[in-house]
Design a protein around this nucleic acid. Sequence first.
DNA 1: CCTAGAAGTCACCAACTGATGACATGGCCC
DNA 2: GGGCCATGTCATCAGTTGGTGACTTCTAGG
Lengths: 192, 192
Amino acid sequence: MSPPMTPARTRNAAATRTAILEAARKRFAHEGYDQTGVREIASDTGVDAALISRYFGGKEELFAEVLSCAPNIAEFLEGDRESFGERVAQMLAVEPMREEKFELFLIMLRSASSPKAAEAIRRHSHDAFYQPLETWLGGDDAAVRARLLSCVMMGATMNRVIYEDYLLDGQQRQELCEALARTLDNYVSGPV
Amino acid sequence: MSPPMTPARTRNAAATRTAILEAARKRFAHEGYDQTGVREIASDTGVDAALISRYFGGKEELFAEVLSCAPNIAEFLEGDRESFGERVAQMLAVEPMREEKFELFLIMLRSASSPKAAEAIRRHSHDAFYQPLETWLGGDDAAVRARLLSCVMMGATMNRVIYEDYLLDGQQRQELCEALARTLDNYVSGPV
DNA sequence: CCTAGAAGTCACCAACTGATGACATGGCCC
DNA sequence: GGGCCATGTCATCAGTTGGTGACTTCTAGG
């Protein structure tokens, strides 16, 4: 009656753990914390949902661990300072959404409304986004300028997530990009 | 055994309907679509949850109807054009969060990640935010400038929601406000 | 070979969600 | 005042969620 208990996955705890983390990262970025069930993550990984509780303690802890190894602001900061605005604006407005670059943003935006995830997001985004950004910016008003950059970047991402760009055509996105680049560079080169 | 069936609420369908809408609006703005249960809304109203299904068809339709009578962009547009940036920046950065002004934003930000709510948000925010804003802005590139304004306003609101301003002190918020005002006015007075 | 423990699976639970149909009740009209 | 329909309540359902402990199976070490 039962050929079940098919192992399928080679027994390797470390690999399984990272596979779960990977699947969870994608799910959380795509669907957000609430919309993602442990069963889905497990299914993506090809594993039973119980393993998530066993390895991470629960969905909440899994989310925290996903955050802690998600790509951070560093992606945006490498490159020369003068082209920062142009580079980021391109990614924000004209290039096809590069999920891997914006994964941290996407996770934040789509999960911030969940109380369980909010605290982890606050902490992590402060450590992995604001702090490095402030340091990179330098100067007395670095905190304010970091916030300004964050507003524009998050707002642009949010808009893109909501409207999926069906509101703007290519030409308009180009104009949008140029304006965003100017604004961003203005904040980078500050002082305010 | 039973003093139950306490009516408590005077029998008035229209009043009850609007009371439910009111309660739902606050809940959706505070907690977001997913985090809000029909039982909570009903309890706030002092009514049984079944009434929500009866009056609105279901939670989803209730959300759509809440959106359709939520405050819209008009709140921000009244007043003279020159002081737009200053006014809005004040509300975004220094004044204590005025929930009633930002309710539409809050609902959008906290509910956008829910697929059930997303479509209603897209449609409504287009009609009640972008269209009026574009008309108010005028000019060829009104659509782009509207998007730019939206990025800054949504980004600022999002940041405020996430961090609750515990990252910036009063002085910094003042600086933030001035920079936001300049950026906003820059977009308003366009062309880009 | 064979046993001990790690790795993974299964069955199940308790809580919660939105929804529905049967029931009670209050107020209006004749 | 009596009946009737709108108004509101209750009990309950079916689905989903995250989580847990007992079970099976694989593999390493003796």
